[in-house]
Design a protein around this nucleic acid. Structure first.
Length: 422
RNA sequence: CGGGGUGUGGCCCAGUAGCCUAAGGCAUCUGCUUUGGGAGCAGAGGAUCGUGGGUGCGAAUCCCACCACCCCGACCA
């Protein structure tokens, strides 16, 4: 991709109405644009990151046995009345609207009311279980207060998976597998997420949250300094500074961002919709369910909250919009020719590269923008490096640079070890 | 929903005891000169001063209402 043709431009200043680090940096660097409180446009750079996160999640969900579907966002009132969620608590967060003939609809903020009746059409026997379906889709929630950039929006992208089981044992088995998958996902995207015991809220009593500790978080996590005890403060019986109920050592209270949440719904929704299956003897039982969510756009925001410095974003490789940022530092013939050649080589190697070919920009501007955008690897071609028949390589996360010969460029990418930002 | 704050070219902002031409920077356009950390000079275009009403000879500036955005709280799978 030639940077001179990129739809967005980096800007010196952040919009005055942004305070959070994630929104400031992502806006300045041209990844997102705010339409209104809680609703952002994802620009080409931002969407590339989102797609990377999406694919990491999709791979793990498929691995879990999930089958991808896409359910409607526009939903009839009737489904929600069946569970009592058209009124409280649904009314609090659900956008509700009227269509022709005063027909009432809601915009999906979660999908139990849709997926459960859907499952009823295909699940009727123990032979049809277990099953799991998931989707990656825009959710709508009429938050009382949208805030913190991407961290709490009124429209956001979420992966939600629903699992169906014959009995509690099978549900728990799947639930535990999902926990492991979730841990892998957050690690891959560069987040160190704690598994935290939590209240199920409107869904279930049995739930875990995945929390990323950072001052930008709005939840408080109580966790042990020694063992893996961790609880959301909402349900915890210990305070920060107290003794761990599991091992007796000290617990701390820290701010954290909830990036994922898994629930054992059990029969809460299958009862409401009479989703049952017949066992071997022909007897009916309620299907037991679990649900498993990850906020993709919130993950994007959380990654920026955790991975940045005073100059800009520092993308973990797995989610970075491009793998390399190639810069023609000066607009002189030899440098352009050398950079063009390097660009060709990288393309041939299948490296995703953003090529800063802007004629009107100074060296300083290009380097500053590169730091702001945060692509993991920076490749600079300048008069100096041309003289050495080389290209300068620098990792965004590191200080030092190295020169590599032009003819070694392809090889460099083949043999280079991945840089994991932790 | 309670409390606090803010709305001025695409962006960041100055200007507010009422004054006639709304200032500057970034960005954009033209020309020249520049190029290892957001370059310089010269010129150009771009503004219903959030919206509606009111008080003045006169309103970005004062009054009223509304809207939007941000922060704290409440709330939050």
């Amino acid at each position: 991709m030639h940077q001179s043709e990129l739809f967005s431009k980096a800007s010196r200043e952040a919009p005055s109405d942004e305070v959070s680090v994630n929104a400031k940096l992502l806006s300045r660097a041209g990844f997102i644009d705010k339409l209104m409180a809680g609703a952002y446009s994802y620009l080409p750079l931002g969407l590339r990151v989102l797609k990377n996160i999406e694919n990491i999640i999709r791979t793990e969900m498929n691995e879990l046995g999930g089958q991808e579907v896409l359910l409607p966002s526009l939903q009839p009132k009737e489904n929600w009345e069946a569970t009592g969620r058209w009124k409280d608590p649904g009314r609090e967060v659900m956008f509700q609207l009227k269509g022709r003939g005063d027909r009432e609809y809601g915009l999906g903020w979660t999908h139990e009311e849709i997926v459960t009746p859907l499952a009823k059409k295909f699940i009727s026997s123990y032979k049809d279980l277990p099953r799991a379906v998931y989707q990656i889709q825009t959710k709508f929630r009429d938050e009382p207060r949208a805030k913190s950039g991407l961290l709490r929006g009124r429209e956001f992208i979420m992966k939600d998976l629903y699992s169906f089981h014959t009995d509690e044992q099978d549900l728990i088995k799947f639930y535990d597998k999902a926990r492991v998958a979730y841990s892998r996902i957050f690690k891959s995207v560069g987040l160190n997420a704690l598994q935290v015991e939590a209240s199920g809220g409107a869904f279930s009593k049995y739930s875990h949250e995945f929390q990323v500790v950072t001052p930008a978080g709005e939840d408080i996590v109580i966790r042990c300094e020694v063992c893996d005890f961790a609880q959301n403060r909402e349900i915890s019986e210990v305070e920060g500074g107290g003794a761990c109920p599991r091992c007796g050592k000290k617990v701390t209270a820290e701010r954290a961002i909830e990036v994922g949440n898994i629930f054992q719904l059990k029969d809460r929704f299958s009862q409401a919709f009479r989703l049952t299956y017949k066992d071997e003897t022909g007897k009916d039982h309620p299907v037991l369910m679990g649900c498993y969510g990850i906020g993709l756009t919130r993950v994007l925001g959380a990654v920026v909250e955790v991975h940045h410095d005073e100059h800009g974003i520092i993308w973990p490789e797995a989610v970075a919009p491009f793998q390399a940022h190639l810069i023609a530092l000066q607009n002189v013939k030899s440098v352009r020719a050398g950079t063009d050649k390097a660009y060709g080589t990288l393309q041939k190697e299948g490296i995703e590269v953003l090529y800063d070919d802007r004629l009107e920009s100074s060296a300083g501007e290009k380097l500053t923008d590169a730091d702001l955008i945060g692509i993991p690897l920076r490749l600079v071609v300048s008069e100096k490096t041309i003289a050495a028949q080389s290209i300068e390589v620098k990792a965004r996360a590191e200080k030092n640079t190295e020169l590599i010969k032009f003819q070694d460029l392809g090889k460099y990418f083949k043999t280079r070890k991945k840089i994991y930002v932790e």
